[in-house]
Design a protein around this nucleic acid. Structure first.
Lengths: 293, 293, 293
DNA sequence: ATAGGTTTTGTCAAGCTTTTGTACAT
DNA sequence: ATGTACAAAAGCTTGACAAAACCTAT
């Protein structure tokens, strides 16, 4: 459904965990030794046996390191984040639980309930955490459930509308920053801008100044705005590859004049390289953090 | 007042002032010595530090010299002429003035200024008045200026994005009402929903409970939602007639089961009558009032 | 009471901060040494660890230098002007943190700061959450601190005044609803109506139509209004039991004609039962929700 | 306008420590 | 698997430097 439910997951050994997370076994052992990130149970023969919680922790630690944190900091938060979301009684439960409840509320057209969940998420977690662990997972889940025919278009529209409105509220005055300038837009044909807004909110929190042109913006217009506003980065987001391909030439031209980032599932390294741009395949929050001045 | 507010413009040294005004540092020092045109504060090490007032004085002195005045005369006038210059931008004013300022801010991509205008409008006027006399007029003006080629698509997108976000903020939790239920949607092909949102905000202000499906929603989906949510009214908004014509049959079917209102410039009495719906040609606020009493 | 809570964004080392801001580590260290721009915490081994606030400050300083300011000036403003480019839209932290900041601002008679906190709370959260998790907790804390002699009467009055004004601003037009009607009043002798207003705001948010008679209203007057307005509920709020007891007979008469709710700490089940009314001992938001569905 | 001295500020170097992924021997 | 070791990368501090910008006085 909206998040992993606690089912009977088999324990895995260090090799498998390494394969799943992309972290070498040596490093995993080092993280266990140095930061007590993991506390695996053992097989009769002494092999380490890891559960899903361990995998989550490794993933979260890796994500933070990728976004520039030091290993020790990442470990501290990966561990603390567990405890905070889990045992210690947060009123709303873990982030995953809140995501579940949010998704359910949206599916039954219950805006007040959805807002309640978001309120409690925002009172417990940071904006970034809410975006990353609640809003975006629900967005993805709803998209998938719609594709699978499990929910109607109306439900999908309703849900998107509610989430978009809340994200835009968080974006208030993101044009007031003193830092580097970013222009945000979706190319023509692309209407889904939730991820883009999320990205902008995180950047704003880091001191960036955001100019938001929104969905379905012609590249030529982005270029014109760029020549006027002199941004440190232009971000183009698309869920599918088509809109980016269609305007490839224009994007390439734009990228020759300023730094262009391609975001969303429509972006990949090959395409980005071809257009002289950069791809941001990770989630918006990590991408925002990685982005330098 | 109660506390000294910190300056918000940094003081600049003589080189920067020279660069900004086009007057050599030597001359600036001479003007200070001879005419006491400037009385800069000093850094710990003794560097001159100028504020914005100094810059204005130099500019004005330079302008007078360029137009033929003697240096001493120009200095006398530049010093005396202080205080004449405009008082700080008055935040209030009539609704029309606020609309002007809002439009100007949006055209120059100045989100914070736009939000300031909206903030002060919302503290002075009611929500309905702000919508009717500020937001919607600005929306229309921007649309016209775009059609006339006076502003770019980027400006139009930026402006729409800011206004939409503010309207959606006013709409927060509009699904929590205890009054009659309304479903709001734009038909397929119609992407402009600002007027629709405005209409919803006014309805919500009258206690209605709003289900918002947003732009580009298939009529069949609206019908499905209607059969589930049993609304007192379904509102379909479109800027042009086409989207409504295209789905005429479906709309007619929908209208046989519940009250359907057609809004926006795409709606007219003839069309509405043909589809068994009602047309709301007037502005959203008036329409909402007529509907909701 | 007004304490700080831990962060949860990863701290970064100087290299990462440098990458994000485009300022070399050497320069960052120089800015720290010379202007105390940054005061990073340290790792066990002595590495500097920076948070998001540091990043904002560096961005802001860099922007000022780029626009011609001297480094020392830029640093001065980046430090002092934390609020100018920063708080302007940077919604701060969790609800508890906002409550802390609000309480602190009110105690030092800093109305602008208090309003800033409320502004950012209202953009982040829904009205209900702000009332429940920010305004009312602060109100209670201030009441207790006043009883304990920790703050003066003047401080308490000032704080109540600011909060009341904001609540009343939220209450604007609360008589326009289309839903059920509620009459709100405090009995004679009761002057504290903040909780009552909060209750009304939440009810209005759910679509109710509010008639607000305010503090110190004779019950006979409430009854007369009720006979004219036919409310779905009459709410009487009092902080102590006395005012309700004193007019017990009249309240009982009123309750025989319509639904009467007793709110505030002066209400309890025994009293309510005796008068034929209902007690709402829980917080206003919960009570409103229970009432209004 | 020139000259001669001062301030400001980014950068660099040297020598040493911390952090962290990986390698190796048992 | 464990424990130890290693080495590259990144950081720290102190001190100094030099170019640019600024000062005063002649």
């Amino acid at each position: 459904m909206f998040a992993a439910s606690p089912e009977q997951t088999p324990l895995v050994r260090i090799g498998e965990l390494s394969r799943r997370t992309g972290v070498t076994p040596d490093t995993l052992r080092a993280w266990e030794r140095r930061y007590r990130l993991l506390q695996p149970s053992r097989s009769d023969g002494g092999f380490r046996l890891y559960g899903p919680a361990d995998e989550r922790r490794v993933h979260s630690m890796k994500a933070m390191i990728d976004s520039g944190a030091s290993a020790s900091e990442a470990a501290r938060l990966a561990i603390a984040g567990e405890g905070l979301a889990g045992s210690r009684g947060t009123p709303g439960g873990t982030a995953a639980e809140m995501a579940d409840r949010l998704g359910a509320a949206l599916e039954r057209f219950d805006e007040p309930a959805a807002n309640d969940v978001l309120d409690s998420a925002l009172t417990t977690l940071t904006v970034e955490a809410v975006i990353n662990q609640v809003v975006l997972p629900v967005t993805r889940a709803i998209g998938q459930r719609w594709e699978a025919g499990a929910i109607s278009v109306a439900q999908e529209h309703f849900a998107t509308g509610v989430l978009r409105a809340r994200m835009l509220a968080l974006a208030r005055n993101w044009g007031a920053g003193a830092g580097p300038v970013a222009i945000l837009a979706c190319p023509p044909g692309e209407l889904h801008d939730l991820g883009l807004v999320a990205f902008g909110v995180v950047l704003r929190d880091r001191g960036w100044k955001i100019y938001y042109l929104g969905p379905d913006t012609p590249i030529a217009e982005v270029a014109r705005a760029a020549s006027e506003l002199r941004p440190a980065a232009v971000v183009l987001a698309a869920l599918s590859r088509d809109p980016l391909e269609r305007d490839a030439a224009e994007i390439q031209a734009l990228a020759s004049g300023c730094r262009v980032l391609l975001a969303g599932q429509g972006a990949d390294d090959e395409l980005a390289a071809r257009l002289g741009a950069e791809a941001m395949t990770a989630d918006p929050v990590a991408a925002a953090l990685r982005l330098g001045g």
